[in-house]
Design a protein around this nucleic acid. Structure first.
Lengths: 366, 366
DNA sequence: GTCGGTGCTGGTAGCGCTGTCAACGTTCCT
DNA sequence: AGGAACGTTGACAGCGCTACCAGCACCGAC
């Protein structure tokens, strides 16, 4: 298998204990609960460990203690840059903690999710982060029975298993449409891809807003299960135009689609926003520097991941947060693509973030 | 910590062995090396395990066997969508294998990388994937001494630690510049951000090509350590224009920058490619659907990750690949942004992929 | 008929760590 | 002064699995 086979300079806890002149169990306690040691022994063990370069054997620890320092994360996709932002937050929050992240990809299948969940749970993870609220009944039961804290991310809904952090995709979509109404648009199309549960709820929000305004028309909707892409945005927009030539705005279920629509408009010499307004979703970085700048709904993906992992770790360590369900809200970022007044770039309509008290974690990129 | 405390239906290997009517060690062998069992016992253990829903305790296995089924992956960034493609390949290849991926982010710091490496190695991983060839001497020594297969990814260079898969960023950049020369461009600028070792080597390739042609000029280069973004692309291009107003092409170190340049040209009413040609790097999906479509250098990121993990797993299991160093090559994708003839979209100049024999793994997106 | 192989199986002995509980010394209370 | 309460420490046992080696049956070869 490998190549070398260094019999290894095995520095075990016993060696550290011996050098420090204490029993192994005392040395063990130093790592688990240093406050339980007298100052003298604590410093002795500490320096002994440092001197020997001791690194604990995680497998032995897990076996003896019946728990692991693993946080399981179940996400539906690795491609989607929405999830890469969330993941970045999760990894950042876990850094410096003893917990390591174990990632699994459900590929948007709740059956696959159930399988992975079973696998995870068998290893007694310290905590679990799962995406969304659409688990199978079986999965839900397993989560309920699990002996560890759990955070559901990406959206909020009824019946949280334990903790929950996200925002309402339904309300975000309604706000997006309301913004377009406010700019005077009426024939607002919807372009969606992948159509996972959260995109579906955005579509629901769009439909509700349109129906409320008496403007709903099935021909204004183009949706496909195909994975999203910029190119697909152009193609779907083309379909939409064929169905509804008198369109005056497009609400895209994500920013890649919006960029595709932008390029397709360029290709067809459609003036934005004069002839057609464009609204995206997620507010990826490029939206603010496109020409024209593209309106979008800002969602706090990095914060979501970061806060989810922080809450989870706190809960693992016995500090359960006061609020188990956090609504991170959203914000309609009005830009040129939707503003008939060609207004300044400025935010509009904020979502009902019940979590305004939260520290605004810096969305720094690494 | 947790919430419930199910004492657990502990199904151990012993239970499986008992039901199957064999000794625990025989049951153990079934999972490690089924061929060593007689057919009768094999089927008995198999059905017993299934009946009881046995899931092995990984911690106990790791403790007893002195090895883990963990593949450590060290990458410099989680933000960069280049790495998300590579990661997707790695995760896809590991699926179905017993190995799980342990990811760590070096944040482009080789000191941090060294620290993480030490941590990983202490847990005796089954294998390791590390990014690039610029490790510290200490890191290199640890890798050489490591008792597991190792793959270096993203680029190829001298002195591989073990296996290596990537392509020459230097040659790719030279090919990019050569393509622009071929289109009649002479005053070719370079725009780079982040300036990690691989971007640096692209810059080196650019410089070499320009010097060879007697066209090198320091004022044609704008580079910053700032993390890359579309917006930054526009800003850097603005700087470049100020330094070299008579520019006729821009080679961007990545596609985000290229998109930023495209938008900035739109803003300034600079015709592409008539006034200025644009060339990106990586060939992200949107490049082919921008207006105009953007020329880029295609790199095989998903394949790189997928092949790296496959090779690693093979090596772990004793099937060391015949070729330890794989050059995956690159391909200049000529599109409208660089073609004064407004030619059809077609590939040009392919890199010296010595690995043409390799199966072209589908770059399917999930 | 004995010998050495081969194929399969089981016993023993831990892997390195921590849970549990007992024991100790000290302090503080009544 | 006696004893409870606390803080600190150590002995012991064992987590669930596998490495190692011995043992057994069976075979063919001499």
């Amino acid at each position: 298998m490998g190549r070398k086979r260094t019999k290894s300079g095995k520095i075990r806890l016993a060696e550290v204990a011996e050098l420090a002149g204490v029993s192994p169990i005392t040395a063990s306690r130093f790592f688990r609960n240093p406050d339980a040691l007298s100052l003298a022994k604590r410093t002795r063990v500490e320096s002994a460990a440092k001197e020997l370069g001791y690194v604990p054997n995680l497998a032995a620890r897990a076996l003896a203690s019946h728990r692991t320092e693993v946080i399981g994360v179940l996400i539906p996709s690795l491609t989607n840059n929405v999830f890469s932002d969330v993941l970045r937050g999760i990894y950042d929050a876990s850094e410096g903690s003893p917990y390591s992240i174990q990632l699994s990809n459900t590929r948007y299948s709740i059956l696959q999710e159930e399988k992975l969940l079973r696998l995870f749970l068998a290893q007694k993870p310290a905590g679990l982060i799962v995406t969304g609220i659409d688990q199978t009944a079986e999965s839900h039961a397993m989560l309920e029975a699990a002996d560890c804290p759990i955070v559901q991310i990406m959206e909020i809904g009824p019946n949280p298993v334990d903790m929950m952090i996200g925002f309402s995709h339904y309300e975000a979509a309604r706000a997006a449409v309301a913004h377009l109404f406010g700019q005077g648009h009426r024939k607002i199309g919807f372009v969606g891809a992948r159509m996972d549960p959260r995109v579906q709820r955005r579509l629901d929000g769009y439909q509700a807003a349109m129906k409320d305004a008496g403007l709903f028309d099935q021909r204004l909707i183009v949706a496909t299960a195909t994975p999203t892409s910029v190119t697909l945005g152009g193609a779907l927009f083309t379909d939409l135009l064929a169905k509804s030539p008198d369109l005056d705005a497009v609400f895209c279920a994500n920013d890649d689609l919006a960029l595709g629509v932008l390029f397709e408009c360029r290709r067809r010499d459609i003036a934005i926003p004069e002839q057609i307004a464009i609204m995206g979703f997620n507010d990826l970085e490029f939206m603010a520097s496109a020409v024209p700048t593209l309106t979008s709904v800002r969602t706090n993906r990095y914060e979501m991941g970061r806060t989810a992992a922080t809450m989870l770790i706190d809960a693992i360590e016995g500090r359960r947060p006061e609020r188990l369900v956090l609504d991170l809200g959203f914000k309609v970022m009005e830009r040129q693509s939707s503003s008939l007044r060609r207004s300044e770039i400025r935010p509009a309509l904020s979502g009902a973030a019940t979590a305004n008290k939260m520290v605004a974690l810096p969305s720094s990129r690494d």
